[in-house]
Design a protein around this nucleic acid. Structure first.
Length: 779
DNA sequence: GAGCACTGC
């Protein structure tokens, strides 16, 4: 049976003309859809002579990779050696499946649209091949149509690291070249690219950093300070529907860059984008933007980029998924989920693994226990069940089980958080059980600092369809929604973009570094207007950054702010690191910050809390959690170094989270290198003078401070909230005069987490307090 | 006296 394209609800997909209108370009008129979508039936017909597939001046062609090699490949020696031959053979093999991809079928229209327009919006369903084929299409064929005088340089952004690396690897394989030559990737900690790289996959964060660190202040109304990304002819924003913080900021910045480059290219007489052949600097060329997204309502992007053409839609390769809803609301969604899994398993019709979506780790473990017990009652004749929890905090080895082959006669049941919605694709799934819940961090802004809490929320319609689609990636599947159809109808259509949900300080600093005024910036969705989180987020970010002395105006970044951007840290953490240079304690601060940004230091299982607390005492620093955690980190590093004891065993005995410490080691290495580049010795230590560490922490966390009251409780210094020290802190039940903390969470009480003590008098040395004192004195 | 989804530089 040929796969049937799934028809997940695509809000607004049946739209009329005008913005938001879409045109389906999935198949050329001469190819029939069932043929195009069937991987089992390769077409032997040669590519059409449509100007795209014939041989081109530089040797690129749409024929198999080994038959035609590019100049780039030849120059790099690919194909000359054994590895090269192997790669070309593999590329030939991949070629067969490539040309069956829906994207390949519609490539002519896509290329024409991109070449004819400044900005193109492509909606591609899962499996259509857009992310792998688009760069090759542009790189190979743009030249043949006389649009560029050289193969265009392309950047493609991804929200996450893994896809960026995987796509670069895949596209390299398809082109028969080694990763890092013609095609490469740049993500944090890893850069595979070289001068020969024409297609660069990267995370959105890398491109944001590049823009922020290589721009100057806006000097004129034309905003010439902005880095114009002249090394790229085309920038592709992939997975734009996810609307990450960076997606939104990048879209805004790219639109401005495009406008400036258009003006400059017009001035020096460069039309579509030829490179200057004359001596001196390369002439400014126009920038093409391609926005790629899942099949959702494109009207926001169409409107934002003011594209004159409607979005293109490329059909995907999804199988049909039936969806069922409950007739009555579930009383206990964990129990209902377990029952549903057993029913799927025992009804006996159909193969395939089951994927259950749960909001969090605790719910997952409860459900897993229930299922393990139930599976013991299965008759011997029945297939077995393998219950596999999956969430981010899980040890890597347990996570890896998802990808190992299941035992004979065993059905796997993966119980996951929304990590399985986008980040991890589980093979073999044909049943999805969706509780309809997720957890999300919510920030509440106060002028006295942010409060946060994790909230149980219903998913959006779009997310529910995304979960449903996870059942139809390999064969037709089924989705069981553990809520009623009416409840589904009540769900919001889309999740609010991240820009309306989180702390904007880091992004706003980067924006100001680009010479852009955050109050006048063109946002796809205004972060202020629709936010219900108290203070207007941009203003809150502006105040935070002013307090940290990172900025001195809406478009003015201070030298300190510029230096803060040299580090992959939030502004407050970057401020702490810079303070350590003057307080002679970069060694301590680097270790502390590496831990703070890497995750929980301690394994926190409720059944072992006393033992964890006892272990913590072994590393106790009376100053608080920051130095206590640093002591643990250093003990771990020493044990790894000295090799007399197993670090894993040591960590287990001391209830220490090795996942966090391993991550911290990478961050630490990177920070040490960056500090070295600032001309500071990262090993410089304050020795026994721990006050220096406290003063540094206070410079970035002065908003997160509280002082003890006569009744033993703590009250915020910048606000009036009464806060408690979290019971996991070494300072719990110790009465200290003043505390600073990493975060304030509301759970059963207002809890400060990761707490250290400090001396109140230090506050008056800080700029925000000095200014306040001055203002008071003058009136 | 505890209740933590997921990314990224």
């Amino acid at each position: 049976m040929p796969p049937i394209p799934a028809s997940p609800l695509a809000p607004g997909s049946q739209q009329k003309s005008g913005p938001g209108k879409k045109r389906v370009v999935n198949y050329d008129s001469d190819s029939d859809s069932s043929e195009a979508a069937s991987p089992a039936k390769p077409k032997s017909q040669a590519p059409r002579a449509n100007g795209l597939s014939s041989e081109t001046p530089n040797g690129f062609s749409a024929s198999s990779p080994s038959r035609k090699r590019s100049k780039v490949q030849a120059k790099n020696g690919s194909g000359k050696d054994k590895d090269g031959e192997k790669r070309l053979k593999e590329a030939d093999r991949l070629w067969e499946t490539r040309r069956e991809l829906p994207f390949y079928q519609g490539r002519k229209t896509v290329l024409e649209e991109i070449l004819a327009n400044e900005t193109t919006i492509i909606l591609g369903e899962t499996g259509c091949g857009k992310s792998t084929q688009l760069p090759q299409l542009l790189r190979r064929n743009a030249l043949s149509l006389d649009h560029y005088k050289r193969a265009p340089k392309i950047a493609i952004t991804q929200p996450r690291r893994l896809p960026a690396i995987a796509l670069a690897t895949r596209v390299s394989a398809e082109m028969g070249v080694a990763v890092g030559e013609e095609v490469g990737y740049t993500v944090r900690f890893e850069d595979s690219t070289s001068k020969a790289t024409g297609v660069r996959f990267m995370t959105e964060g890398v491109l944001m950093r590049e823009l922020a660190n290589n721009s100057r202040e806006a000097s004129t109304s034309e905003q010439q300070g902005l880095n114009l990304l002249l090394q790229y002819d085309v920038v592709v924003i992939d997975e734009a529907h996810e609307r990450t913080l960076n997606t939104d900021f990048l879209c805004g910045a790219l639109k401005t860059i495009q406008r400036i480059r258009k003006g400059l290219a017009g001035k020096n007489g460069n039309g579509a984008g030829s490179s200057g052949k004359g001596k001196g600097k390369e002439a400014v060329t126009k920038l093409k933007i391609v926005v790629m997204s899942a099949t959702l309502d494109p009207s926001k992007f169409v409107r934002f980029f003011e594209t004159e053409r409607p979005a293109l839609i490329v059909k995907g390769r999804m199988y049909d998924v039936t969806t069922r809803h409950l007739l009555e609301p579930a009383e206990d969604f964990i129990e209902t989920a377990a029952k549903q899994v057993m029913q799927i398993h025992c009804s006996g019709d159909g193969e395939g693994d089951v994927l259950v979506f749960m909001p969090g780790a605790e719910e997952i473990e409860t459900c897993a226990d229930t299922l393990r017990r139930a599976s013991k009652d299965l008759p011997d004749s029945s297939d077995k069940l393998a219950i596999l929890p999956l969430y981010a905090q899980l040890a890597p080895a347990a996570q890896a089980k998802i990808f190992s082959k299941p035992a004979e006669n065993t059905r796997r049941v993966v119980i996951a958080t929304n990590i399985a919605e986008t980040s991890i694709t589980i093979p073999g799934v044909s049943y999805v059980v969706d509780t309809g819940f997720k957890k999300e961090k919510e920030y509440i802004y106060r002028s006295s600092g942010a409060l946060e809490h994790l909230k149980l929320k219903s998913v959006s319609k779009a997310a529910a369809w995304q979960r449903t689609g996870r059942a139809g990636r390999e064969r037709a599947g089924h989705c069981y929604r553990l809520f009623t159809e009416a409840a589904f109808g009540d769900l919001i259509d889309f999740d609010a973009p991240e820009i309306q949900r989180c702390d904007l300080a880091a992004a706003v600093l980067q924006l100001i570094a680009m010479g852009q005024n955050p109050f006048e910036f063109e946002y796809i969705d205004d972060p202020g207007r629709e936010s219900t989180l108290g203070l207007i987020p941009v203003l809150a970010a502006f105040q935070t950054l002013s307090g940290l002395e990172a900025i001195s105006g809406p478009t003015t970044i201070t030298p300190l702010g510029r230096r803060m951007l040299h580090f992959p840290l939030d502004p407050s953490h970057a401020r702490i690191l810079l303070s350590s240079f003057t307080h002679s304690c970069p060694s301590e601060i680097i270790d502390i910050l590496s831990l703070v940004v890497s995750g929980p230091v301690w394994i926190d299982r409720s059944s072992e809390r006393d033992a964890t607390a006892a272990a913590r005492q072994k590393f106790l620093a009376r100053e608080g959690d920051h130095l206590t955690n640093m002591n643990v980190f250093r003990a771990y590093l020493a044990i790894k170094d000295d090799k007399s004891e197993s670090p894993a065993k040591w960590a287990k005995e001391n209830f220490v989270n090795t996942k966090t410490l391993q991550a911290a080691i990478r961050v630490r290495d990177q920070l040490r290198e960056l500090v070295r580049r600032e001309g500071v010795d990262p090993a410089l230590s304050c020795g026994g003078d721990k006050d220096s560490v406290g003063r540094c922490l206070l410079s970035g966390l002065y908003m997160n401070t509280a002082v003890v009251q006569s009744d033993g409780t703590y009250r915020q210094t910048t606000g009036s909230l009464q806060v408690k020290i979290h019971p996991s802190s070494v300072l719990m039940s110790k009465k200290v005069p003043a505390i600073l903390y990493d975060e304030l969470t509301i759970t059963t009480a207002m809890y400060a987490r990761n707490v250290s003590q400090f001396e109140q008098s230090w506050l008056t040395d800080l700029p925000p307090f000095k200014q306040a004192a001055k203002a008071n004195g003058s009136t």
